[in-house]
Structure formats: C-alpha cells, structure tokens
Design a protein around this nucleic acid. Structure first.
Length: 766
DNA sequence: TCGGTGCTTATTTTT
DNA sequence: TAAGCACCGA
C-alpha cells in the first residue's frame, strides 16, 4: 500500500491510537479516558477499514450513544475516505428498529408498527392500572420503570409473577403481561421492545441472524459502559461464535446510566465473552488543561474502580478552577449569567463557549430566566423540549393515528381535542366492546352502529370521526406531507380551537405548530416519509436537537452533556442533597459512586475554564431550604481550586481602558464613557437588573406598552446595566426587543437583543 | 359532554 | 411553584 494515504489516516494519532486503529481483526477493547480521542480512533479505524477495502462501507456497523453522534461519525469518516457516509451507524434503538421493520413478518408484527415513546408507554400502563381499579395506588411511571428493567433483564412475566411479594410487585405482575398483550393489539413496540424483540428475533430465527451478522462484518460499539444486559446480549448474538471483528470503546469511570439498567460490568466481561480480546488504554487527554484534569483525577480517585487510569495532558498549567459560593439559588443564576456577560462583552468569549450544567432539569429555570432577562441567547437541551410539548404531541398523535389507527393511546389523546361529542362514557362503552372482540378502539368505532349500548348521537359522532380519519389516510398518499399535515390540523378543528382562544399561551402553541409543519416540510424535501419523521421524533435524544453552530449558551443536565465538550463550563448546584442528589424521603444517597462519576463526567467536559457553584439557600417545591456545600467540594484538595464567595451578584463594571479603535461607533462609545465618568452618572438600568430574576419574560412583554417602544430609536446610544454600551440597530414595534450592536476595543462586534424596559437612550449626544 | 375550580402531588437522570 | 387530576355543576 502506498505510504501517502497511510500518512493521511494516521496523521495526528498517538502510538496507542495508531495500534488500535490498525488492529482490525478480532475483538478489541479500548479503555478510553475522557477526552482521549476515542471518537478519533473510531472514525480513523472505520476509514482505514473502508480504505483498505477490508469491507464495503455498508458492511461496517457503528453503534453510538445518540443519533447525532452517529451522523457526525459518518461525516467524519466521509471526510477521510469516500463512501464514509454509507457506513451503518445509529443508536442500538434506531439500528434495531430498521432490522425489525424489515423482519416484522418473522415476529408476526405488522410491518408498520408504531414506536411508543416513554410518554405513550406510561399512558398505556396507566390505562391498565385504571382498568384494574388500581388507579392512584401506584405511580404509572414507576410501574413502567420496573417493567422496563425486567424486559431488559430478560425476565418474563410468568417468571416474575412467581416471586412477586410486595403490593408493588403484585401490581407489576398484573400489569406486565397485560402491557405486552396490549402493545401487540395496538401494533406497537416500546423502546425496550426494540432491543428485546430484536434479540428474540435473532434467537428464534437463526437464518435472520445469519443474514444480519454476515452483512455487518465489522462491529463497533461506543460507550460500552452504558450498555445494558439486553444490548450486550444483542452484541454477543451479532458477533457470532467465531472470532468476531468487534471493536468496543468504553470508560468505566464514565458510567452514569446504572439507574436505567446499564451495566459497567459489561466493560469487564467483554474480555470473558470474547476471548483473545486485545486491550488498549487511552490515557492522554487532549481536551482539558492540567489544572482541570488535576481536579478531575482528584474526584475520581475517591471511588473504588476496577480499571486504574490516570489522565494526563500535554496542556500544562491552565487557569485554576473556581469554587463560588452564593447566598441563594437566584444569586447563583445571576452570577453565572453575569460572568458569561462579562466574558462575552469583553470579546474574550462567545456565548457558545459556555455550558451551564446541573443535576436535575428543574434547576434550569432560574438560569433560563437570568439569561432571558439579559437577552442572552441560549439553548436548552432536554427538559420539556419541543417534542414533549402538549401541542406537538397532540399533532403527532393525529399523524400517528393516521398511520396506525390501532394506536389507542394516540386516539385517546386526541379524541376530545377538540371535543367532538365522544366523552368518557362513550369511550368506556367502546372499550368494553373492543376488549370483548380483541379490537382496538378505532376498530370498535368503525362498528359503532352495531353497538347497542351507544345512543344515536354518540354512534354518529364515532362514524364521523372514522370517516374523517379514513379520508386523511387516503389523502396522505396524494398530497405533499406538510400540506397534508396542515390540513389534518385544520380539518380536525384543532387549530381553530387554539385560534379562538386568543390567549398569549395559545399564540405560542400556534407558533409551535407552525414550526412543526416547517420541520415536516424540510423532512419531506429530503425525500423522507411520515413514518420516518415520527420515528426520529420518538427516538430523538436531547443532543439531537443541539445545534453546535448557533452562538448561544448551552443549558443541560450532566447526563445530556455526555460526550460533549465546551471551552468554559459551570457546574451548578453543588450542594448537599442537590448534588450528590438525595431524594427528600430517603436518608442516604442511593448510589454515591455513580453520583461521583457524574461529577467526573461534568468536570471533564471543560477545555479551559471551570467554575463550580453552590448556594446557601435553594427553593425546592416552593420551599426555601438551607443548603451546605456538596461533599464533593469538601473532598477536593485545597489547591485544586480557587475558593471565593460572591455574595453580591453585581461587582464592578467592565473596565475598558484601551484606546478606542478606529470606527465611528466605538469612538462615540468611548467619548460617551469618558463623559459619564466625568459627570459621575450612575450606570443606567442597574436598578432594573436587580429585578431581573423576579421577572419572567412574559411579564416584561406585558409590562411594556407598545407605545413606549419608540422611546428608543435606531442609532441611539444605550447602556445596559453593567455590561456595556451599544448602538441600537433595530427596534421591533411588536415586542419590547431591540437589537444592539456593541463595539469593543479590538473591533469585536456582538449582537444582542435586549429589553426596552431596561434600555435608556442617551440623549443630547454630540 | 365539557369546562371550571380547587386540591394534590411531584423531581432524578433518558433510549 | 406548577402542573395534573378528580370532582362538580351546567
């Protein structure tokens, strides 16, 4: 082979990485520390396989943790070698979904089965509990979680029933088989089925297994430490009994999904399951400064771990991480936002350099408010995201019902949304008829006229609805997707109802539906079907929504931050009970080691700057609680971080003493600054800033009468509390928003959207 | 059948 | 605090 291309593939890899890439035959385990370039190894190895023609791109499978990671992997392979984008890559779930669609016949499932997301599944469990008169005794979510664990551990309902003792156990023992039975009737699979049914498929149909395992000649698995029992079993099956070409990457220190059945043990059992495994260790970190790594090492060394690793970096020194104590959770949010503001205003950082991380989603709110009130752009990953908003889910339920009318969960969701004369009583009667004949609700509705129990009015309403759905089903094949979707929402009366409401909230919902239609249009333009759209909506992870190109602060749980990295990271809420998280009704932290690994994961996301914050008081469920610094902080070596207490959120205004750069805008700002200093005027808007956290954006919008907006005009010079000065570029007459151009010494320009309520024009200038 | 009111309850973390 | 749910009255 010629030396030239080898140089391409191996350029920039260290010795261990190179060896791992070259080791293409047989099982390989790479123990990869955080930031040690495992994605690089993965992409280069696949590129190497493709380029050496050991296999065609589609014969290479890579199982990643998110679909986004899969997409990036393909891109990166494609950047090195032709055909890289044809590599089969996806999550366990999306990969197996493709298999199951193709092989549905073998499992006696309809090929167009629905995929139930968590919400759907929990609703189904709730149905069953309600039917069994167990409503209210057990939380459906909990029961579903137990069932999910059982499925992934391959515990069959009959097996479980034998050992059921506690009331919860017995409830689960009742719900579990019924839940499976109904999924089948509804022609649906839940998330766990995608793995478990695939395993069943491969076990019971050796010829099917043979097809797929010979198709994928090279297997890759990322994040091995977060795979569960069923997934490992799936790997074993696909790998076959011969010496498989199976390449796994993992880090036991980063195992953070134990609560959903992930088994770190899979990392250690890999070598037993696959004899002759070659092991490589990646310990050089390319991401963080030494100061950050020192802290990370200090954190993880406190845990009992099986594989001793110690990360090191060639990036010596670095800024010492800071520990910042605040009085309250609101101060914490303000401090974080202010620090971001100062760094951005000084031109030292962009918004997108920052990530704010927290233990639980509920903590995001204060940060959102603080950022929003300053008009800083931000992206929230996770939480109540787009696909879990009510209106989005309702709309998707209409679409799902059209694809699979047997989907009772979707039907129930929208049957009274808007109300159409089919209420609880009618539904109850339909349901008993459906149960009797093993039908879905929709099928029962189709036969509503046979149903004596229904009065004419209800039967009519049913017939009308059935006709409507059938008409939509026909239309789906003949119309462009986005047009079809819009007319479904229109004809169903869903949109009309929102329009009639005319509230602030309903307007937002209509906007969301618009963007849903937009995204459908985009999707359709790429030649994809509605089925595929719904699948990606169901299987989308929080990270899949993350747009790395937008210049905005990222807010996320630490779990959602897995695999990501940022120049500057805030880890917040480092207090007792919050992180490590302890449930209010329990006296101990459930899994202290996993909490610690979570902390470790968070720390190792940072390139250059790291700040750890905590506050003395925090509002939980509306109640103010006293908090102390987290045990994690107390365990840190003295010199691992710089400790400071920032009780006051507003310290000083940014110093900009450099001479003004050329350009009229900065000239004007500079002169203005000098004048203000001379007159000893207070910084404008400072009082307003104090109120920021108390005000939500919606309140602000109502607070400002539209007539007041022209108080600021284009070209005005403005000040906005401590951050800086700028010139108004653009005033929106409808909202209280203003776009402001801020210029700095180096000619750095930042666009901000700020609140008119807080902006005051500087008059009589020049 | 449906909408409104007032009470309860919840917070880990997510494919 | 906020959302979700059960109950009740029209």
């Amino acid at each position: 082979m010629n030396v030239q291309f080898r140089k391409d593939i191996f350029a920039g890899l260290n010795e261990v990485q190179k060896e791992a890439v070259l080791c293409t035959e047989g099982p390989v385990l790479v123990l990869a520390g955080a930031g040690s370039g495992k994605t690089r190894v993965l992409t280069h190895r696949i590129a190497h396989i493709v380029q050496r023609k050991l296999a065609r791109p589609r014969q290479v499978l890579a199982v990643t943790f998110t679909n986004k990671a899969a997409g990036e992997l393909k891109e990166r392979v494609a950047a090195i070698t032709a055909g890289g984008d044809e590599v089969a890559a996806g999550t366990f779930h999306s990969t197996m979904l493709r298999v199951l669609r193709r092989e549905a016949k073998a499992l006696v499932y309809p090929q167009d089965f629905s995929v139930f997301d968590n919400d759907d599944s929990v609703r189904l469990v709730k149905q069953i509990l309600d039917d069994a008169n167990e409503a209210g005794k057990f939380r459906p979510k909990l029961v579903h979680a137990v069932i999910s664990r059982l499925k992934n551990d391959f515990v069959a309902p009959e097996q479980y029933a034998k050992h059921a003792k506690s009331p919860l156990d017995r409830a689960v023992a009742h719900v579990y088989p019924e839940y499976n039975r109904r999924l089948k009737i509804l022609a649906a699979m839940d998330f766990d089925d995608l793995i478990v049914q695939a395993t069943r498929l491969f076990r019971e149909h050796p010829s099917v297994l043979a097809t797929w395992s010979s198709r994928w000649r090279y297997l890759h698995v990322d994040e091995l430490q977060d795979t569960n029992f069923a997934q490992f079993e799936l790997l074993r099956l696909l790998a076959g009994s011969q010496r498989p070409n199976l390449f796994a990457v993992g880090d036991d220190d980063q195992s953070i999904y134990g609560w959903r059945g992930a088994r770190v043990e899979n990392v250690f059992q890999f070598q037993e399951a696959f004899p002759e495994t070659k092991v490589f260790r990646l310990e050089q970190n390319y991401r963080s400064t030494q100061a950050i790594l020192d802290l990370a090492n200090a954190v993880i060394e406190q845990s009992d771990r099986r594989e001793r690793k110690r990360l090191w970096t060639a990036r010596g020194g670095g800024q010492l991480p800071e520990v910042i104590g605040l009085a309250t959770d609101q101060d914490e949010a303000r401090e974080v936002a202010d620090r971001i503001g100062r760094a951005v205003m000084s031109g030292r950082r962009a918004f997108s350099d920052f990530a704010i991380m927290y233990r639980t989603n509920a903590q995001s709110r204060l940060f959102e408010e603080a950022l929003r009130s300053r008009r800083f752009p931000y992206q929230l990953l996770g939480g109540v995201g787009f696909y879990s908003r009510k209106e989005t889910r309702d709309a998707l339920a209409y679409f799902k019902l059209c694809l699979n009318p047997r989907d009772d969960i979707s039907l129930r969701r929208i049957i009274s949304e808007p109300p159409r004369g089919i209420g609880a009583t009618t539904l109850e009667r339909l349901k008993s008829f459906a149960d009797e004949h093993e039908l879905s609700l929709f099928e029962a509705m189709e036969r509503a006229c046979e149903l004596r129990a229904l009065n004419a009015r209800a039967a009519n309403a049913c017939a009308k609805f059935v006709d409507q759905v059938n008409a939509w089903r026909t239309a789906l094949a003949n119309e462009p997707l986005e047009k079809w979707a819009a007319s479904v929402l229109e004809e169903s009366g869903y949109i009309a109802r929102l329009r009639d409401e005319k509230s602030f909230e309903s307007q937002g919902r209509l906007d969301n539906l618009d963007s849903l239609i937009d995204s459908l249009a985009e999707h359709a333009a790429a030649g994809r079907s509605l089925t595929e759209y719904l699948e990606q909506a169901a299987l989308a992870t929080d990270q899949d929504k993350y747009d790395p190109h937008a210049d905005s602060v990222r807010l996320m749980t630490i779990h959602a931050a897995k695999g990501l990295e940022f120049p500057a990271v805030f880890i917040t809420g480092l207090e007792g009970r919050t992180f490590p998280l302890q449930r209010p009704d329990e006296s101990e932290v459930r899994d202290p080691d996993e909490e610690r690994r979570l902390f470790y994961v968070a720390v190792t996301r940072a390139h250059d700057e790291l700040a750890l914050t905590y506050s003395g008081r925090r509002r939980v469920w509306g109640q103010l609680q006293e908090r102390s610094a987290s045990t994690f902080l107390r365990e840190l070596p003295e010199d691992a971080a710089e400790w400071r207490s920032a009780r006051s959120a507003f310290t000083s205004s940014p110093g900009t003493d450099e001479p003004a750069a050329a350009g009229s805008a900065s000239e004007r700002i500079r002169r203005l600054q000098r004048r203000r200093a001379a007159e000893d005027l207070p910084m404008l808007g400072q009082a307003g800033a104090e109120e920021d956290a108390e005000r939500s954006a919606s309140q602000e919008i109502r607070d400002v009468p539209p007539d007041d907006v022209p108080a600021v005009r284009n070209g005005d010079l403005v000040l906005h509390h401590t951050y800086g000065q700028g010139i108004v570029l653009d005033v929106s007459p409808f909202r209280d928003t203003v776009r402001v151009l801020v210029e700095f010494d180096g000619g750095v320009q930042k666009r901000l959207v700020q609140s008119v309520a807080r902006l005051q024009p500087v008059k009589d200038f020049e």
